[in-house]
Design a binder for these strands. Structure first.
Lengths: 116, 116
DNA sequence: TAAATTACTTTGACACACATAGTAATTGGT
DNA sequence: ACCAATTACTATGTGTGTCAAAGTAATTTA
């Protein structure tokens, strides 16, 4: 059986996931949620409440800016755009992730005798 | 500058780290803390309170068992031993980690994909 | 004999993800 | 035309793992 991604393991990555998607173009909540499901090949689904919490946190922090879509046709959609600062945050977070992967590997994958 | 490992990113891995070290032989808090520092090449230090919290959680869960060392000579030391169940938990957690790495990579190292 | 180190414990705070519930418009099937 | 499902966003409250801070106490070192 395929292991699940626990909330403790995903913690700290949701903002980066959202920033990465917005880095490829403006988008809104529902679309991002679907994109996450798709990108992960159905292995992960971003919880709605989490997603909107992330929006608020990122916007407050200046990493994204939100704007309402044209409401005259179709339902309301709140779009988000990544800022210059958000792009930097994304870069930093990716670097932190690659670093953390290396360290965690050293710590939980026993002793593999490789010195770089 | 070297990125740090945030508490949000390490979350969910400390138990696995401890289990992995105990899987190589019984040990106690202070020694494990030093081993973590050493294994990570000083890139990560397990907080004391976290470590002892992890002990309690793992013991309650049957993954480890504790016993007091010989106190007649030297200071008190509480040793922990990994159980058969703990070894299974370790295996499961490692599998979950390798799986999560793959999924998170897909989500945050998103190559520029064309959408259909 | 004072300082540093070893070694374990307790308490309380915080941040993030999440469950749950709610509002409201649009789309699809019959 | 109607009802269900889907789309889309918001608000509130909860749980848990990590951590800071402080405490206790023995041992080692200078």
């Amino acid at each position: 059986m395929k292991p699940l991604i626990s909330k403790d393991i995903i913690r700290g990555h949701t903002a980066t996931i959202v920033l990465n998607i917005l880095n490829q173009g403006d988008s809104y909540g529902y679309e991002i949620a679907k994109r996450v499901k798709e990108l992960s090949h159905d292995d992960y689904e971003l919880n709605e409440a989490t997603l909107y919490t992330v929006f608020r946190r990122l916007e407050k922090n200046g990493d994204i800016v939100g704007y309402w879509g044209d409401e005259t046709q179709g339902g309301r959609r709140k779009y988000y755009q990544i800022t210059t600062q958000g792009k930097q945050t994304l870069t930093d977070n990716i670097e932190a992730w690659n670093f953390a992967k290396k360290v965690i590997d050293e710590l939980i994958l026993g002793r593999i005798n490789n010195h770089e």
